[in-house]
């Protein structure tokens, strides 16, 4: 049963992710991305990472993607123009190499995993929906990465302003 649900969810995620690339209209791509995120959230729930799953829905699907779609609509972006492909090398080398990489990755995964996977530490599952565990880890063991993230985000904000503001 668990395997069936996992296969179903990951199938949706992969098809939707491929659809992002195939679609020519940005709105369709954005909507496909939302489908991918929701399917991923389902997989997170299967892994007992309920907090991450909820965050995935609230932050990515809820906030960021809505913003994405607003921007696309505001810009009134139409369907992408087909540009004649000048670089044929990419087609002839890139595709086979990419398929080879995916094939190898699949082969490795099927060889390495015995179907058991890595056991989730049971203590972390039972602790109040593991939100408390995440909070504890963020402010003790991962305090430094947590703080560094704020510097990273600051740099990104500065960058957005430098790139977009009319006059500095």
């Amino acid at each position: 049963m668990e395997i069936a649900v996992f296969l179903f969810l990951s199938g949706i995620a992969i098809v939707a992710a491929a659809n992002i690339l195939v679609q020519r209209h940005p709105i369709y791509s954005a909507l496909s991305l939302i489908v991918t995120f929701v399917a991923l959230a389902g997989i997170y729930i299967q892994m007992h990472a309920e907090f991450i799953a909820v965050m995935q829905i609230v932050v990515y699907t809820g906030a960021i993607m809505v913003l994405f779609i607003f921007v696309i609509m505001l810009l009134n972006a139409g369907a992408e123009q087909k540009v004649p492909d000048k670089v044929h090398v990419v087609k002839y080398f890139g595709l086979p190499l990419a398929s080879l990489l995916i094939f190898e990755a699949g082969l490795t995964a099927s060889r390495t995993f015995d179907g058991e996977g890595i056991p989730v530490e049971s203590a972390s599952i039972n602790l109040s929906g593991n939100t408390e565990m995440i909070g504890r880890a963020l402010y003790t063991q991962y305090a430094l990465p947590f703080e560094v993230t704020s510097v990273l985000l600051l740099v990104a904000i500065v960058g957005a302003i430098v790139m977009a503001k009319k006059e500095l």
Partner: peptide, 17 residues
Amino acid sequence: LIMIFLGLETLSIASYI
């Protein structure tokens, strides 16, 4: 590895700009 990634991204985003 997580710290490496954060440091690398801080550097990368600053260089993009």
